[in-house]
Design a protein around this nucleic acid. Sequence first.
DNA 1: TGTGATGCATTAGAAAATTATGTATACATT
DNA 2: AATGTATACATAATTTTCTAATGCATCACA
Lengths: 112, 112
Amino acid sequence: MGNQKLYKGSLQTIILKLLESNDKMYGYEITQKVKELTKGELKITEGALYPALHKLEADGLLDVEVAKVGNRLRKYYKLTESGSKETANKLAEMQEFLKTMQHLVNPKFSLE
Amino acid sequence: MGNQKLYKGSLQTIILKLLESNDKMYGYEITQKVKELTKGELKITEGALYPALHKLEADGLLDVEVAKVGNRLRKYYKLTESGSKETANKLAEMQEFLKTMQHLVNPKFSLE
DNA sequence: TGTGATGCATTAGAAAATTATGTATACATT
DNA sequence: AATGTATACATAATTTTCTAATGCATCACA
């Protein structure tokens, strides 16, 4: 919702995590999955998604496989081997970050 | 560390939270406090900090009080009334975001 | 037949950082 | 005396990463 800007920088990690859980996905599917998983809180725009996918592919973290469904085009993405490794790294990084932020802003613990 | 880019978008919230906990602080003090609280994981650069402080001030969320310590200048910032309200909002937003991300990157261990 | 959903993509622009640089004081070490 | 590190402010150029807008095309369905 209002916190849409907070997710800056975590899109790649989100994509990688989804592909780790789902083997292969296509772009539109990713946007819908994120919307569903976050109950509409996070909306991935196409202007962010497609460049991100292209970059991950260019970096060798994703493989593409084009499929035709009816007369419609789909590009299925899946993790390469090095993509799997990078996913583990990025997820660890994210966990660390979440822990740090949790600690920073948690109202229960005042910051001295 | 490597997750330095993940914090994009949360600097304002961090500043506001620190000022909520500490009544008044000056810029350099904020950078040191964040470094200390996060054990060096998060480093606020001046190029990000000062523009952020100026914006918060311009938006009426912070008041400034200039102090001279020895021959050195310090600008102490503290929350205005509307700053306190906004802090509450931003902290709630952040909690929500952290929960969402936690759920996204580790659906197995949801927080709820 | 036109509207919303599906599916790809790019472009212009904004937001929010990093990096580099600048000024100046203070203190400790060589 | 000179050098480096810490303290303390600040800005400018650049980069990263998004949003918003737009475009093309297929498909379902009312």
